[in-house]
Design a protein around this nucleic acid. Structure first.
Lengths: 239, 239
DNA sequence: CGGCACGTTGAAGGGCTTCAAGCTCTGTGG
DNA sequence: CCACAGAGCTTGAAGCCCTTCAACGTGCCG
């Protein structure tokens, strides 16, 4: 067995999703899979591409973006370590319904279309875990639908910052949280169905209130608690 | 075997989801399941209830509603025949994250928590089908996120009418489509993240334009094509 | 036939978008 | 090394879409 295949096996074995997969199945999976390292800004796959592959995100962050007919982009979901990307479309044989864009340097394992399915057939606990993953994904999507339906823009922006903090936040000695990815106003806007101008105004307000410290494509949350208050409760409208 | 258990077996066998399930597994599933008939307005389960059961919708329509802290309701999803309801929360053991409300007289099969899981373990094709179902559910949710993010209220209302037409629409001889469920302005509002007043004004406009005919809790789509145009394209703003 | 839920319509106002202009930072090539 | 181009950000002003509040119809059911 080649050295790179050995690497793939090790990676698969170390993934949470495959934690108790019997060694023969690990080997089987490894045959049709390979490791890819991606750096910030790269694109894993484009909307409309035929979906023959799916990916397990080992480290880093990747977001799913849908391009609309009139040129606007909408961020559908953001993934962190141990998320599966593109599995469901690969199962159905549809083309990818969105573009996967790398937010911070990432490592993924790419699987051939039917490999994981064979593994699930032979190892039931894997299927449970995949179903659970889909379940929590669906749950998140439902949450966002509710938020987009009834919450104000400010509240939604606060929420996405809180959410990002839990996914890629780096706690500093002074209690503040640094978000370890390039994140422009535009990015935040298309995560929340708003415009970059509104995001800019909101962040400026929070900066004056000492809640965040933001600069060009990076944000540090100075007062996580107050941000959570805005996200949950709505009423900190006295900036 | 009791007569009612025989009924359950027949129902399970006739469901698309279980189309090729071996008879022994059908029997096994039947043991822990029973048929429930529900009429419009009834509630299948409430948000916060412990989730011990999940349901296969045989006929009718059911919607998932989330109640927010400040008293607003948001319709997260609408289900038609052959949809599974509550499976994922039942798998995780969480309480139901939403309320399931019957929109038109429905028949469901109620399953005990682990029954389908055993069946999936023993019959792999069932697991594929469940995963596919989840996939299309997730896909729908993503579509709604995009719509709520970038589309106008009018467009979203048009879309939900089109979608409802395909789920519970009854085609009339003259080409119009009657929506076979009780549907108030309030209902349409909480499906689209808007208010009943806005829905009322929109429908009044469409009525004057001859696109729909709406009355107390019922809607008939007179010109499906024009409604699709509004949903897709945005620009029929000259009512 | 009275009550009540559902629906309509108007008016006021606010949150957010849109358009526009100028600023600031970053990286790159001469 | 520095200047310059361009991407990212800020700020202002205008206005529209939609919400909110409010009052009044209207149809259905007991």
């Amino acid at each position: 067995m080649s050295e790179s295949q050995q690497d793939v096996r090790d990676s698969i074995r170390s993934a949470k999703l495959f934690v108790d997969l019997p060694p023969p199945l690990v080997d089987q999976l490894a045959i049709s899979s390979r490791i890819r390292a991606l750096s910030s800004g790269e694109v894993l796959f484009h909307q409309g591409d035929p979906a023959s592959t799916y990916y397990l995100l080992q480290s880093g962050a990747i977001r799913l973006v849908q391009h609309t007919a009139d040129g606007k982009d909408v961020t559908i979901a953001t993934f962190g370590a141990d998320d599966l990307i593109g599995l469901l479309v690969a199962l159905n044989g549809d083309p990818y319904p969105a573009t996967a864009e790398v937010l911070s340097d990432s490592v993924v394992i790419a699987f051939g279309s039917s490999a994981i399915w064979d593994a699930m057939n032979q190892h039931a606990p894997l299927a449970v875990r995949v179903l659970r993953l889909m379940g929590s994904r669906l749950h998140e999507a439902h949450d966002r639908i509710r938020e987009l339906s009834v919450e104000r823009v400010q509240q939604r922006i606060a929420r996405s910052l809180v959410r990002l903090a839990s996914k890629v936040g780096v706690k500093q000695p002074d209690g503040s949280i640094y978000l370890d990815l390039r994140l422009s106003r535009q990015d935040l806007a298309q995560m929340n169905g708003t415009t970059l101008e509104t995001v800019s105004r909101t962040l400026t307000g929070w900066q004056k209130a000492g809640i965040v410290d933001s600069g060009r494509e990076h944000i540090t949350i100075l007062a996580p608690h107050r941000l959570v208050l805005i996200a949950e409760d709505a009423d900190e409208h006295n900036l």
